[in-house]
Design a protein around this nucleic acid. Structure first.
Lengths: 147, 147
DNA sequence: ACTAAAAGCTACTATTTCCCACTTTAGAGA
DNA sequence: TCTCTAAAGTGGGAAATAGTAGCTTTTAGT
């Protein structure tokens, strides 16, 4: 279970250090941890343990090939996916293509989402938050949500 | 049952002391008390006993993943959630990310909300109150509310 | 073989965490 | 009512650790 947000920074070579408090959770899944990074339409990247990614990838690959509503998702999720290694200092290298997609420069937010992490440029993340504050209507089925 | 508002202050390291009158209630739930802090769209933080938080988190995790109206909520509620420990002096440490989200500096309000607490920066809390005072129309279903 | 880029390593700095001490307040007993 | 005691709130310091940046080494490509 990954949860919690961490403000981090990419180094000059586009590498991102995994915060120490998440390392145990990654090792539980498999060790050494195999990870997959891919792109999300909201402008962030997704970081999955390989085992958790496999079934999702399988499902996306099964989308009807000629329906363009599906192919956009497939191009993004499968097309951008790459396996990344963790080095001795617990860093993952984000490729220039993915960095460019998510507009990542130094300051970055790593956000736990249960099965995976999202990686946001700090700017984009803050815009994302403002969107929620501005949002007036609740999505259907959430009206009775009690916090 | 947590109720009542308390004016408190964060110390230089971002720690918040739980007022003594709420300590018994926390110990009733489980001891030592396991707590979770997360973010709320209104700009405050939520402090839950772990047992009360679990079902909420479960529901949020079940939201449709590809519908962005829901994922914003998941990003906020799960993305910011972190388990906090209580030290020997009944203090909880609020991480820089959460402090930054809720714009917390020294003066803070801790507001009991039954199942949980809300943590507000004093400034934001006062703005919130003014907004309520200025509000003229009652939300639907509250017209017959008897105090 | 030389150059450039990427991977790895090392060292420094900032943060975190744990612990201790002091001040203040509340409550009980004389 | 005053004093003594215990508990609570507050602040601070030191040690450990995490994060970052810079430097070196290796590898690949020309």
């Amino acid at each position: 279970m990954f949860q919690g947000a961490a403000a981090l920074s990419l180094d000059a070579k586009g590498r991102l250090t995994v915060p120490s408090r998440h390392r145990d959770a990654l090792l539980e899944n498999d060790s050494p941890p195999n990870l997959v990074v891919t792109a999300h339409p909201d402008g962030c990247l997704l970081l999955y343990p390989a085992k958790a990614w496999a079934p999702i990838r399988a499902r996306v690959m099964g989308f009807p090939a000629l329906d363009s509503r599906f192919s956009v998702w497939k191009r993004l999720l499968v097309g951008f996916a790459e396996e990344v290694e963790i080095d001795a200092a617990w860093r993952v290298l984000i490729s220039p293509e993915l960095r460019n997609f998510a507009k990542l420069d130094k300051p970055v937010m790593l956000v736990g989402q249960g099965s995976h992490f999202e990686i946001w440029s700090k700017d984009t993340w803050e815009k994302q938050l403002q969107q929620l504050t501005a949002q007036t209507e609740l999505p259907p089925g959430m009206e009775d949500f009690a916090l």
